[in-house]
Design a protein around this nucleic acid. Sequence first.
DNA 1: TCTGGGGTCCTAGGACCC
DNA 2: TCTGGGGTCCTAGGACCC
Length: 455
Amino acid sequence: MYALVDVNNMYVSCERVFNPSLIGRPVVVLSNNDGACIARSNEAKDLGVKMAQPWFQVRHLQRQAGLVALSANFELYGDMSSRMMALVGRHAPRQEVYSIDESFLDFDGVPGDLVPIGREMRAQVLQWTGLPTSVGFGPTKTLAKLANHVAKMAERKPGSYPTEFAQVCHLGAVPLDALRQVFGATPVGDVWGIGRRSTARLNEGGIHTVLDLVHADAATLRRQFSVVLEKTVLELRGTACLDVDHEPAPQQQIMCSRSFGSPITELAGLVEVVSQFATRVAEKARQQAAAAGAVHVFIATSPFRQNDRQHSPSTTWPLARPSADTRLVIQAAVQALNGLYRPGFNYVKAGVMLMALQPEGLQQGKLDLFGASPAGAQAGTQGSTLPCRPAPGPRGVDGARLMGALDALNRRFGRGAVTVASAAHQARNGDHSGRQERRSPRYTTRLEEIATARA
DNA sequence: TCTGGGGTCCTAGGACCC
DNA sequence: TCTGGGGTCCTAGGACCC
């Protein structure tokens, strides 16, 4: 039997732990640039605020309805997440951390009634971290997900589902007719793995509820849609196709992308932001002890600016050999960018992705024909590389040691304290990193921002 | 004026090989 | 004049997730 434990309105709940005056009020957490709502309290959902809705469209609700908006504080959410994950992981033999606020648990071999275990787990997380959760049990991951959805909705919208399902719901332990009722009351679009596109197509074919879906022919759905949907149907019928992934494979890509505070039209501005994103992904790769085989870059205009000409190209630039050296990643990213850029467009977003990741140190042989010159661009200008020594970086400095020193300085003095020159023009040329005017303190990870208690 | 960011998996089709 | 077929690998793009 599987469980899915999930924090209700995670980001808002994290904020409420440290600012209880937010409890009971409509609250949203905003994305980068304070541009869109990426988390909503139940009260904000009831006001009609949609996921990813632009802030300017709901801003008027501040006055009209007391809506409170906060800038995202990912450092806080990440730390709260690890505390919560550690707690729930104790209750089952195997755990898969599925996202920042969700965890699958595998209760295989655990005897007895799981519902009391779920309630205890929920109470413990609430008491020890302050975060409210919902728990769903089911014989497959998809059913556990659905049970979790039911647990949440039964609490939030009395009447949508039987009240005994509120907070903790075990769909593997209900009578068949009760299960049919749940299936009949749930739109297909609420099922894990069925998105907007598939929902529309299923509806056209007369499939509206989960009950319709489980009665449909799986092989036909596979032909018309995909194996993914077929598996979803099998899982809803109780046949497990997905297992808990307790040892996740290393990441395949590392990305950093962001929209800008205001459009950028000049190449120089794009070089700066792309260099910063490249710096960030290289840092992330080194944290994971990974090296990238290629660098993918994209820039994009805004589809919302309908009078603008649109241009959203992307390209992948190979590295001469796998690396997480900030300088090499920046060089490759900027070269890629040079090929993408066209004058006369209002670019509003860019991103850098590291591809073909592999464990650091796995590289075959320390030598290659062109030494360490990036993408072979400076081949022949550096003389030959001696065997059995780490190849020098672009300026003849030992790359690994330099990056290690860079990371250590930034850990100690804060991110961005030391960086590569091409990524450091921000202060002079205006800030493209965007607004974050409503961010709460990083209570749990910065000593200087720790919560203070008042008598 | 202002419209998220970071991921995974699957599929189709082209390149390439023998 | 006649001009293969089967397999693998890679890539781009789509759909989905939170």
